[in-house]
Write a protein that binds this DNA or RNA. Structure first.
Lengths: 207, 207
DNA sequence: CTGACCGAGTGGTCTGACCAGCGGGTCATG
DNA sequence: CATGACCCGCTGGTCAGACCACTCGGTCAG
């Protein structure tokens, strides 16, 4: 019921504020940011807080900092990484469709890889989870489904799949509620080492 | 021939050093980092440089900082985003296979979306690039291929695809050199709005 | 016209101080 | 003995101010 209180540092506030200005286009790509000292003065925080925020924006691919020169805003569509999809979707929920398409592209291939490389233990765990998904209340089903996909990613043994999944998991697109039978079918294909069947079953679940 | 000189700040050096220790497992997940003041003393840099590095590590999902408590190392397999695949691959080139599989999962779906949504201008540009790829020296072919995929991603209109591609583009997996005919076939499918053909053609190019 | 030089403005680093949160220990109180 | 207030030492968070290093544009002697 109760949730942990959100603590946030000054630098994080500055970071999020400027990040959202860039993502929303209010700070156009190619334009120049005010000098650090001036930003600190405007935002009424210390220059170190501003600096920390700017360095994080640089790491995210949103701005380019140059020693001795001004700081420029970059085009996030060209320079940002997948991590930025999280604030982008929160800023523009219509982008959820993009995320769903991304997930639909990824997970069937994850299932294919898992069918090829999963260990017996991993298969067991996936079958167990699929079984537990048969009958339960909604909340528990959601947790189990999350566990299932998590285990599937592990079974694929692919680190790129894992890291990309870490990002989309932060959003909970909420869509699609595959039936327990769907999960069971996928688990069966995995147990049989049926790569094509696993990919097709997952593909069907993404619709 | 000549390349721009790599400049790097102290904080970046600290960041990369600790990052690589975490990614290589020399700093185990769950262990505690020394205090900021002590790190600054050990690394012989100012505390602000250390702080900046630590905050960037936190943003990358490699460590967890807690006000008043110690800084703990996280399990990057669970908390890091796709961006971390870049240093990971540089650290362990065998992970390139993971990245190739990731790309092979992504690009066919990108082509499918592009076949569905690309504008006439975008199709024209893709056909032109496919044509230019017919005969040229190796270096120019590489640039054109890069341009082609870039244009394809744009044509898909999917921001998640775009951001994910930004990440894998930073690595240049070097593999696979599809023939010009492959590109032409894909461009034809795109022009015809043939979603299935575009996906299949791309899939074939990934092998 | 060329190239050395200078100065203003920018980000980069440093020092040292104080504020704020956490955790363990102490100890009076019930 | 259990409890809870309190203190202390540690941690990270914020601050002010100084100086270093780099870039760029203007100046000016050659």
């Amino acid at each position: 019921m109760l949730q942990p209180v959100q603590k946030s540092s000054l630098a994080t506030s500055v970071y999020e504020q400027i990040r959202d200005l860039v993502l929303s286009g209010q700070l156009a790509a190619g334009s120049e940011l005010p000098a650090e000292r001036q930003l600190a003065d405007t935002l009424q925080v210390n220059r170190s807080a501003v600096r920390e925020a700017l360095k994080r924006l640089e790491q995210a691919g949103l701005i380019a900092i140059q020693h001795g020169g001004n700081t420029r805003v970059l085009d996030y569509r060209r320079h940002a990484g997948l991590d930025l999809i999280v604030p982008l979707v929160q800023h523009d929920p219509s982008r959820l469709d993009d995320l769903r398409a991304f997930r639909a592209a990824l997970l069937p291939e994850v299932a294919r890889a898992a069918a090829e490389r999963a260990s017996a233990d991993q298969i067991d765990r996936l079958e167990m989870l699929a079984g537990l998904l048969q009958s339960d209340d909604a909340e528990q089903r959601r947790d189990l489904a999350s566990e299932f996909w998590n285990a599937l990613i592990d079974a694929s043994g692919n680190l790129a799949f894992r890291l990309a999944y870490n990002v989309i998991r932060r959003i909970e697109p909420e869509g699609l509620q595959p039936s327990a039978d769907d999960y069971a079918e996928l688990a069966n294909a995995l147990a049989a080492g049926d790569t094509r069947g696993a990919a097709l079953a997952t593909q069907a679940m993404m619709r």
